[in-house]
């Protein structure tokens, strides 16, 4: 029997961190694991690093009784303790982000709100770019950050037209970066960079514009913060605790609709309208998470 140690989402799929399996070689043990834990596990296995008694292993390596194989997916951070640390720092970051949005929304005038958004989008872009770098890509991080700043200024000055302009700018800045710096000329680096820049700039511009137009009278931003915050909290809980009938994605979607409706009731807004907004948010949250997962790990 060989001990297989599992980390991150492979551990979640298998429902255990440690399993004993039969096999003469690394490949045989892994195929026994595939047979036991199914297709989702098998696809996760493709991008995972395999360690045999603390050394990198290849499929043909022979294994014997009492050996230990560790399967470490790229997102786990390398070991059990690291994975645990990353989970906590992600929670803290999410909470800080939420408080930042609430605080800057309460502050009068658009300046604090804009500054908070830029900070949040910058942190997110740098984080997702770092994950791409982990996978050997070279995202145009500085170009993305430049695009975010340009988006804030252009949306503040020109409103809706500025938001449209900032989308054009975010594509142009990232592409132009490749003209100046030769190592950013690979399509596999430019494409995700443009995508990150588009999401970050339109996110910044869109929330700025919504606050300018719909706050403080119509509470669209407060309801956004409530719905998305609730959805993130529910998703964070469901990622850690397995609930019957509710996976993280449907939990996120339900929480977004619920948050939106509760927000509309609290601030006495049009409930029917905000049910639709909640449904839209639910869809965007689920799609966005899948998109993020593609960018971070190359898989949905």
């Amino acid at each position: 029997m060989v001990t297989l140690r599992l980390f991150a989402h492979l551990r979640e799929i298998a429902g255990t961190a440690r399993v004993e399996l039969e096999g003469e070689t690394v490949a045989e043990v892994l195929s026994a694991a595939r047979a036991r834990f199914g297709d989702e596990f098998a696809s996760g296995l493709q991008s995972a690093a395999i360690w045999h008694n603390g050394e990198t292993a290849s499929p043909a390596d022979a294994v014997k009784e009492g050996d230990e194989l560790a399967i470490i997916p790229p997102v786990s951070g390398g070991s059990g303790t690291m994975a645990q640390g990353m989970v906590d720092s992600a929670l803290v970051a999410g909470l800080v982000g939420l408080l930042l949005l609430i605080g800057t929304n309460l502050a009068p005038g658009p300046a604090w709100w804009a500054a908070g958004l830029v900070l949040l989008m910058a942190v997110w872009s740098v984080d997702i770019a770092a994950r791409l770098e982990d996978r050997g890509r070279e995202p145009v991080t500085l170009g993305i950050l430049t695009a975010i700043v340009v988006a804030v200024i252009s949306t503040h000055v020109y409103g809706g037209v500025g938001l449209g302009f900032s989308l054009y700018i975010s594509v142009a800045v990232v592409l132009a970066w490749g003209v100046v710096v030769s190592r950013y000329r690979q399509l596999t680096d430019v494409a995700p960079s443009v995508l990150i820049a588009l999401v970050a700039t339109s996110g910044t511009g869109s929330l700025m514009l919504t606050r300018t137009i719909y706050e403080p009278d119509q509470h669209a931003i407060s309801i956004f913060i409530l719905a998305v915050g609730l959805a993130a909290v529910v998703a964070a809980i469901l990622d850690r605790v397995r609930a019957p009938l509710l996976d993280p994605y449907s939990g996120t979607a339900l929480a977004a609709v619920l948050g939106s409706v509760v927000g509309a009731l609290i601030w006495e807004e049009d409930v029917v309208g905000f049910v639709l907004v909640g449904l839209g948010l639910a869809l965007f949250l689920v799609v966005g998470r899948s998109l993020g997962s593609i960018l971070r790990t190359g898989r949905v």
């Binding site: 970050a200 869109s206 929330l207 919504t210 993130a232 965007f284 966005g288």
Partner: peptide
């Protein structure tokens, strides 16, 4: 920060969504 991905995407499309509905 995977949880933020969905939130960022939702943020990006929030203004178009709200302005279409209201």
């Amino acid at each position: 920060l995977g949880l933020l991905d969905g939130a960022m995407f939702a943020a990006a499309l929030y203004y178009p969504l709200v302005s279409v509905i209201f």
